[in-house]
Write a protein that binds this DNA or RNA. Structure first.
Length: 477
DNA sequence: CTGGGGACGGGGCCC
DNA sequence: GGGGCCCCGTCCCCA
């Protein structure tokens, strides 16, 4: 016979013990603030602590001490509260930091929820967003987000009552129920984004992890590191940034909270005040309408006006919802966001490779397909269509003179220079335009062979099918 | 190990 | 304000 409330009561008791500093055998130092906790609870909740405590498992008599500089005490409070309650107090202000901290601590469940939170904010559909983040008590039992949280819950944490004035934008995501085990569940509308983020993570992770891994770092360092600032901020405690840098980081991170505005001219509720109002809320309701397709993420894409004016820093007004990157213009943010979403709207119609930016496509086309520099790669002599050929080896294409060609005995894909010539880059970067090889005007993906039968031109239709493809494999380099 | 080539992200400027 | 373009730095792959 199973008593469903046991798990909850057990956790509640542990939380009570933590509050009363009973049996706490682990001290966590976060930017000077000490948090007390139980090793076994931390061990069970975080991959980072699991590794850390495993290393120190033999010295059980002494309290374990861990210190962090990579995130703020407030962020760790959210994390620790989750560990001891199963409730994750996410807000538009803290979601990035919480996700970064969770990444650092290897708490995949928390990361997943943060991603979902962010994804929902990015969702084009305002309705969808409202459904997932209207977290009044009533909605907690009916809307999407909490459906993901209480999905097949074996036990249910007692309902805390978020203030009824919470708006969708600033609602607090309560990760309750059986969240410990079941957070792999996503509402269907959010799975794609989840996959995208994960893949992007993997890509960044595999590519860049080694540079950030210290000897004692967790295996999965925060992957959301598109900015140098975040690179620094994510450094482990043992490799903390220089004091000067750290101060800057703190200032910027702090200002990213205090200075957050929900659309221009919106009210700003300082974080501390928000916390006084409610431990799980982030203040007053204030929704704002931005512009498509970012209209639905106003509470994350904050306008950084106040701190930019307060400090003498340049006016970096737009903040990336996925990292700490700040940009001056919305267009720059739009461009930057593609590095997170993996969106590649600019296909090269000569080779099918897709690019996130038109100028990169343009550059690619010039260097690869228009080979402006008719020099033999081997002997460096000038070649013409008569004296040389374009050779393709794997993904590399270059020119060789006939002599070097014969010497090398290359018989891989050869491309006539003449055949190269007609390829013209489409003007004005019309990503939807069909710029054609010859007279063909076809839709959908189609393989077209040129006269030589060697060069394979892939015409790519940038419509639904491609969208599907983009979602499946973003950011393939 | 090193250098070259290509891809990519950020910043800035121009229209 | 937004798009396009250019430049620069960085990273990765490969020879």
């Amino acid at each position: 016979m199973e008593i469903s409330s046991h798990q909850f009561h057990l956790l509640e008791q542990l939380n009570e013990q933590r509050r009363q500093d009973l049996f706490c055998d682990c001290n966590i130092l976060v930017e000077g603030k000490v948090f007390k906790a139980h090793r076994n609870v931390l061990f069970a909740s975080s991959g980072y602590f699991k590794m850390l405590l495993s290393q120190n498992s033999k010295e059980t008599s002494q309290p374990t001490t861990a210190s962090f500089q990579a995130f703020s005490p407030d962020t760790f409070t959210v994390i620790l509260d989750f560990v001891y309650s199963g409730k994750l107090s996410l807000t538009g202000q803290n979601v990035i930091e919480v996700m970064s901290a969770a990444s650092y601590l290897q708490m995949t469940d928390v990361i997943s929820v943060c991603k979902t939170f962010i994804k929902s904010s990015l969702d084009i559909s305002e309705k969808e967003k409202d459904r997932y983040f209207s977290l009044s008590d009533k909605d907690v039992n009916s809307n999407g987000v909490d459906r993901s949280c209480v999905y097949s819950a074996g036990w249910r944490a007692e309902s805390s009552s978020p203030p009824s004035h919470l708006s969708p934008d600033q609602g607090t995501c309560m990760m309750g129920g059986n969240a410990w085990n079941n957070l792999s569940y996503y509402p269907p509308s959010q799975r794609t984004a989840q996959q995208q983020l994960s893949k992007h993570e993997q890509r960044q992770d595999s590519g860049k992890r080694s540079r950030h891994l210290g000897p004692q770092q967790p295996a999965d360092i925060p992957p959301y590191k598109s900015s140098k600032l975040e690179d620094r901020a994510a450094e482990p405690a043992g490799h903390s940034a220089q004091p000067e840098e750290q101060g800057q980081i703190e200032a910027e991170v702090e200002s990213s909270h205090v200075g957050y505005q929900y659309g221009q001219g919106a009210d700003v509720t300082p974080r501390n005040q928000q916390e006084r109002e409610s431990p799980h809320s982030s203040g007053k309701a204030k929704s704002s309408k931005g512009e498509e397709p970012y209209r639905s993420m106003p509470f994350i894409m904050g306008v950084m006006g106040s701190w930019a004016e307060a400090d003498d820093l340049p006016r970096m007004r737009f903040k990336c919802p996925f990292c700490t990157h700040l940009v001056k213009r919305k267009a720059d943010l739009k461009r930057h966001l593609r590095c997170h979403t993996g969106e590649r709207p600019y296909p090269c119609e000569a080779c099918g490779k897709r690019f996130s930016r038109l100028d990169h496509l343009s550059s690619h086309f010039r260097t690869i397909h228009q080979a402006c520099n008719p020099i033999c790669r081997k002997c460096k002599r000038h070649v013409t269509e008569l004296t040389g050929q374009v050779v393709q080896e794997g993904t590399r294409r270059y020119r060789l003179c006939n002599e070097c060609l014969a010497e090398a005995g290359i018989d891989s894909v050869r491309v006539d220079l003449v055949a190269e010539a007609p390829l013209e880059f489409p003007p004005d970067g019309n990503k939807d335009s069909q710029w054609h090889y010859g007279e063909d005007n076809r839709s959908d993906v189609e393989i077209v062979e040129d006269g030589s039968g060697d060069l394979v031109i892939q015409q790519v239709d940038d419509s639904e099918d491609e969208v599907e493809e983009k979602e499946v494999k973003p950011n393939i380099r």
